[in-house]
Design a protein around this nucleic acid. Sequence first.
DNA 1: CAATAGTCTAGTAAACGAATAGGGTAAAAG
DNA 2: CTTTTACCCTATTCGTTTACTAGACTATTG
Lengths: 152, 152
Amino acid sequence: MLRNKTKYALKALQVLAKEYGQGPVLISEIARRERISPKFLELILLELKNQGVVQSKKGKGGGYFLARAPQTVSVGQIVRMMEGPLAPLPCVSKTSYMRCAECRDERTCGIRIVMKDVRDATARILDSTTLADVLQRVASVVQGKEGLSYAI
Amino acid sequence: MLRNKTKYALKALQVLAKEYGQGPVLISEIARRERISPKFLELILLELKNQGVVQSKKGKGGGYFLARAPQTVSVGQIVRMMEGPLAPLPCVSKTSYMRCAECRDERTCGIRIVMKDVRDATARILDSTTLADVLQRVASVVQGKEGLSYAI
DNA sequence: CAATAGTCTAGTAAACGAATAGGGTAAAAG
DNA sequence: CTTTTACCCTATTCGTTTACTAGACTATTG
């Protein structure tokens, strides 16, 4: 499960992607639109800024905006920033591999083999989906092109 | 990331799957083979027993054994038991759906659309992989049929 | 009955998660 | 140049979870 922090980061970036090229957006505006605690969101945006994903402007007319075009920011990048590796186990992570202390033979660890598949599938999806893609898929749903709902 | 508890549960079940049909295996034996704290493993096996995945026998010649054939126990079942839903967000879980409190319109939430894909991919892999499959894939690696290693 | 081996309840130290608090600093308006 | 607007940054709180550890209890076997 993703942390709230990660979910909020993605929601905020979705807003900034939508407003991309139209000047800065206030923290309070994002918070209002996504119903997130403004103070908590501030922390999150600050972290995204330190990671170089967004930029900010102070004073009147200030706010946050994407540092790069929405087509160049993948969901995978953001999730890794906020959450750490995508891999279900550290021993299958490509970006921050670590062996399991107790594992005798990594090569023949069945759990690892399966979890590597999961990691690869997750990475394939998240790394190939950009903020622009996300906006487009939302637009498709609104136009009734994509799956309308799904059974709980 | 999976918890140690989940990883240990899967490792223990892998051992029990290998020994399936050959009588009970001692907690201490599993702990030794997988280098897990025996006391912690005890708690985990107890939980698996209460969930009906394994059975036990007390006294001399006792130990734990699988309650069902390895072909009928999926990794997905075990992960859900120990970890909860596979879904990265509660609003895309099929087994324990819950809406996000702050979400205005779930249907047009971009994050949700992407995370639903991740959930589906994960579930497809974990629910279609049984303990027997895991053993077989390990055997394949030992025989040099499957990917020998992969770059870190 | 003694030895074996699982059952079950508690406890605990450390880390984590989700905020909240509040003063600091830069930029623009007047 | 001072006020207002907004972001900047550090610290703290508080409840929950994680990963164990301890130890007494109970059933089975020989």
